[in-house]
Design a protein around this nucleic acid. Structure first.
Length: 434
RNA sequence: GCAGGGGUUCCCGAGUGGCCAAAGGGAUCAGACUGUAAAUCUGACGCGCAAGCUUCGGUGGUUCGAAUCCACCCCCCUGCACCA
């Protein structure tokens, strides 16, 4: 028998991780009674999950740690349809082979967060294409479709804006999405006695669809729990930066960038995020917050957050790499770096470009724009005018713009080939003369 | 299908013949202050090092000159009709 942590639900609530739940608070009792099986779905809409998926992913882990069995469902079938929930417009369908490829990637990504070898509560990864693939349309319509009232479905908040708004509309295909996800739940109930689905709060409509269907098809009692949408105090969208989405895949977002993302969390969000994204206890987090408040000056919350989350996602080595770049760039002297350390920086995920004659013939504005440091030459020009472009620590001026070759001479290079260019306060790029 | 309203630079949204690369706000970038935070202040914000080049749903036209006027076309919204 697995030990059940009966305080799980309270714990989740204390962390602010409960947005909505079904069942008039009987879920707590249900979970306290025995080891239960729960699932959460991840649709393949890209070749990697991003940090938005981290909350449900870690929550699955929290359930597992409390003695329950998590199922991570990768939506090989639902990903072919597209979830309309709270989407303003109809989505473009991806081809089956693209989706299949993404399914594979998400499966392994999801797998790193849950334990597959811990006895009764070992995790399972499933793909809903397995049961949808051979399903007959007529069977589906007769056995599943019959349980859904279109009248109810169009009342759901998640599709309302698409139904109400003329000109946008919703295709029959997307409208059907809810049936598919509901069927997933019923199927997992049948196959694995899965009695709980968790998901982001945007999934509420789909989840309750599933609990209803499970009851209608199998008379089973099924629960739903949604997690809050992660928001930031300044109102901007969580998980995006100027340079794009923060992905979990190290090849898409380096551990260094990932670490930096968390390090840059606003104070106002920091402790909330510690509760969402780490396994530190609420008491520990509150103690950190209290200390930071008392200490004044630079808080430790962000570093703790960055370290914990980076290690969770990228492991010890990823964290070490991220920290080593960070300390080299932000707290050390660039000239203290050894040749080996400079080589390591690129391997650790610092953006790097090679500089050849062609590159040296461009204005700095073009060079720094082309390597992705700035979006437009204008930005570089502005930075130059304010001495915000540093090449190996030396500030460049607007009049240096056309003298790229003189800025990157071999004599000025570290170890005859390396340059670290800093644009603004936080953007670094490594150049190597070739 | 008919009638009315509308499509402006990343987003919202002014502009209705020259003073418009186009008000204002948001987002974004840089600077100051700080703590690689927030708030605040400053600057930038179509592209280009520059000369200059390309924009205001599309295509043609009127004009010395158009985002602004005309014609046709496309798309959206709101009524009505049609359909059921």
């Amino acid at each position: 028998m697995v030990d059940i942590d009966t305080t799980l639900l309270d714990e989740l609530q204390a962390r602010g991780l409960v947005a909505q739940m079904t069942g008039d608070n009987t879920l707590g009792a249900h979970l306290a009674e025995a080891s239960r099986t729960l699932y959460c779905g991840f649709d393949p809409t890209a070749d990697s999950l991003h940090i938005g998926s981290l909350v449900p992913l870690l929550t699955l882990k929290r359930f597992q740690l409390a003695g329950h069995k998590p199922i991570a469902l990768v939506g090989g079938a639902t990903g072919l349809i597209g979830d309309p929930s709270f989407k303003a417009a109809e989505r473009k369908l991806n081809t089956p082979d693209v989706v299949a490829n993404w399914v594979g990637k998400l499966q392994s990504q999801v797998s790193q967060f849950i334990d597959f070898d811990c006895g009764e509560s070992s995790a399972v990864v499933v793909n809903n294409l397995d049961w949808f693939n051979g399903l007959d349309v007529l069977d589906f319509l007769r056995n599943v479709g019959k349980h859904f009232s279109v009248n109810n479905m169009i009342q759901k908040e998640s599709v309302k804006q698409r139904i109400d708004r003329e000109g946008e509309g919703i295709s029959y295909t997307e409208f059907t999405y809810m049936l598919l996800q509901s069927y997933d739940f019923a199927e997992l109930y049948k196959q694995h006695n899965c009695s709980l689905q968790i998901g982001g709060s945007d999934q509420w409509g789909n989840i309750t669809g599933g609990t209803d269907l499970t009851r209608r098809m199998y008379g089973g009692q099924a629960f739903g729990l949604t997690l809050p949408l992660v928001t930031k105090s300044d109102g901007t969208k969580f998980g995006k930066t100027e340079s794009g989405t923060i992905w979990l895949d190290a090849n898409k977002t380096s551990p260094y960038s990932f670490y930096q993302f968390w390090l840059n969390t606003a104070d106002a969000d920091c402790y909330k995020f510690l509760k969402y994204f780490t396994f530190l206890s609420v008491e520990q987090i509150e103690a950190i917050e209290k200390q930071d408040a008392e200490a004044g000056g630079r808080p430790q919350g962000q570093s703790i957050l960055a370290e914990n989350v980076t290690e969770l996602v990228h492991g010890e080595s990823g964290l070490a790499a991220a920290k080593s770049i960070t300390s080299a760039l932000f707290s050390g002297e660039l000239s203290d770096l050894s040749e080996g350390e400079l080589e390591q920086l690129a391997l650790d995920g610092l953006d790097k470009s090679e500089l050849n004659t062609e590159g040296l013939s461009k204005p700095l504005t073009s060079l720094l724009t082309d390597c992705g440091m700035a979006k437009a030459g204008r930005e570089v020009k502005d930075a130059l005018a304010r001495s915000a472009v540093l090449i190996n620590g030396e500030a460049k001026k607007a009049e240096d713009n056309m003298s790229t070759a003189e800025c990157f001479t071999r004599e000025k290079a570290m170890f005859d080939r390396f340059f670290i260019v800093k644009l603004g306060k936080k953007k670094y790029h490594l150049f190597e003369l070739v």
